[in-house]
Amino acid sequence: MSGAAGPGAPGGTARAPLPCAARAAAALQLGGGADPARPGVAVIDLRFPRGGAADLQEIVFRNFYTAFLSVRVQRASAEGPRKWVTCLRDYRLMPSPHTEEGSQDYFSLFRHQMLCDVDQVTAVRFILRQPSPVWLHFTIEELQIYPPSQKSPQKDFPSWLSQLTPPEQPANLHGELPDPEKVSTEVQQMWVLTEVIRARQAAARIGRFDVDGCYDINLLSYT
């Protein structure tokens, strides 16, 4: 499932995700017993083509009933065998694992959230946990990895907005509001920018529902 194409990229301005191959989620099993107990842990391994390495900026995915996510990476190094390093530990995707909240949401993990450096990464391992036994399956889908870029860190943002959120900025706000000064300057910028957007859009609501004065309808369409 993972690695599937994400939602259609608008225009040509969106960043391209890194090409990578993710293996399907493998459930962790205890010593080949006949009991098909649900283990609650699964692993997704991801590698870059031709043994390449990449710098990670953002990991985007859609959750499917995974409650906690850990990420480990292997980095290219000159000396010694490559080691797995944990860069994210038990990140909570579902606030309450027995219930739906967050179960099918989209998530972004940013570079600044990582516990270690994520440059020159050769392999990424996602460790998925679901302590609740009520779900039949859990995985993460539509997995995409983005490299750092000058462009928007957020695909699908209108391009004019991208200038407002520079990608390298640490956004660790601990739930506090950003500096009002900064917001107000951003807003001013946006007034100008939205003006442009508006000019491109159709006129304000006129409330017409007929087509050239005609609204004669026989039946509803099923498609």
Binding site: D105, F107, Q154, A171, P178
Partner: peptide, 8 residues
């Protein structure tokens, strides 16, 4: 989950 600043 959008990061809070860009969400705002």
């Amino acid at each position: 989950m959008v990061d809070p600043e860009s969400g705002l």
